[in-house]
Simulated scan of single mutants.
Amino acid sequence: MNDPAQIDPVVKLTLLTRSFEQGGVKIDVLRGVNLTVAPGEIVALLGPSGSGKSTLLQAVGLLEGGFGGKIEIAGTEASALNGDDRTVLRRDRIGFVYQFHHLLPDFNAIENVMLPQLVAGKDREDAAVRATALLEALGLGQRLDHRPSQLSGGEQQRVAVARALANRPALVLADEPTGNLDEATADKVLGQFLELVRGTGSAALVATHNERLAKSMDRVVRLHEGVLQ
């Protein structure tokens, strides 16, 4: 049996920095962030609007450059990869859920969840089976052939959750995933999201400013003045 201490963390950030220039003034958004997320761990990233939560998730998600420090995803140092290899790592190991669902409007629910699997080279029939299972687990078994415009906001966001988990990622990044929903719907969607993430064994880093929702996760870290507390 493997020693848990020898298992690579899903995320390891070392002295992560990010600065922007605005009106000729340098703004340090991230000032040396250190963070480790273990396999299967769900971590809430708390902080007010403008604190840099989205910037931190963009770094972990390998969505843009310009960061200083070291980013390791599932044992791979991202800074050592070329653009194509970073794309493959992001595609195969990371799932994303945003505040706004970003579903493709011309595709129905099952097709939206199948798409990332097809891009990754999965057989179409297998992709449909996986998509159906995820959507049914989220209570959308009767909505598989509905397009986003035919779904409620909560249903759209649940499809986005299923899409994020379609390729069985090691890590799910969620940026205010229920911020666009009313409180009752947000609670329901978040509960289903956490249950499904735990069921798949993925780790998750969830950015939110909602203290109440953060308490339902395994650990809470706070971004304050560019560093984690």
Rank of each mutant, 00 (worst) to 15 (best):
V206R: 02
V159D: 01
L171Q: 01
S149T: 06
K215H: 05
A78S: 14
Q99P: 09
A38Y: 06
G61I: 00
T76G: 07
R147P: 10
T76S: 11
S202N: 13
A174T: 09
D175S: 04
D175K: 04
A120L: 12
D182K: 14
D84K: 15
L196A: 11
L57D: 04
V159I: 05
E111I: 04
H224D: 14
L13D: 07
D123V: 14
V25H: 11
A184Q: 15
L165Q: 03
Q22M: 03
G179E: 06
K70F: 06
G50S: 03
D85W: 07
E225N: 12
M1F: 02
R124C: 02
Q6W: 06
R143Q: 11
R158D: 05
R31K: 15
K122G: 06
E136D: 11
A203C: 08
L118M: 11
K12Y: 09
E225A: 12
K26V: 09
R31L: 07
E136R: 10
L213I: 09
V29M: 13
V10P: 00
G32C: 06
L16K: 13
G68R: 09
T36G: 07
Y98I: 00
T87Q: 10
R212T: 10
A166S: 07
E21K: 14
A44C: 10
V227F: 04
Q58E: 06
N167C: 08
Q229S: 11
S216G: 10
G141Y: 00
K26D: 03
M1T: 06
L57M: 09
T14H: 05
K215M: 01
G191Y: 03
V25T: 14
E176R: 01
T14F: 00
R124S: 14
L45N: 11
N2I: 12
H146Y: 11
L151I: 13
D145G: 08
G199R: 00
Y98L: 09
G121P: 10
S49M: 04
V172S: 06
G68Q: 11
F96M: 10
D84Q: 15
G179S: 12
P9E: 09
A184I: 10
L103G: 04
V10I: 08
V37Q: 06
L228F: 12
L144P: 03
L63Y: 00
E21C: 12
F67Y: 15
I110H: 01
V97N: 05
A203M: 11
E125K: 15
A109C: 10
G23N: 11
Q6R: 15
V221K: 05
Y98Q: 02
L181I: 12
L89K: 02
V206G: 03
A74G: 02
L16G: 14
E176I: 05
A170N: 08
L115T: 07
D92F: 01
Q58M: 14
E21F: 07
V197Y: 01
V172T: 12
H101T: 02
A207K: 07
V97G: 02
A80Q: 14
R93W: 00
G139V: 13
T14E: 05
S152N: 08
Q229K: 14
V10E: 01
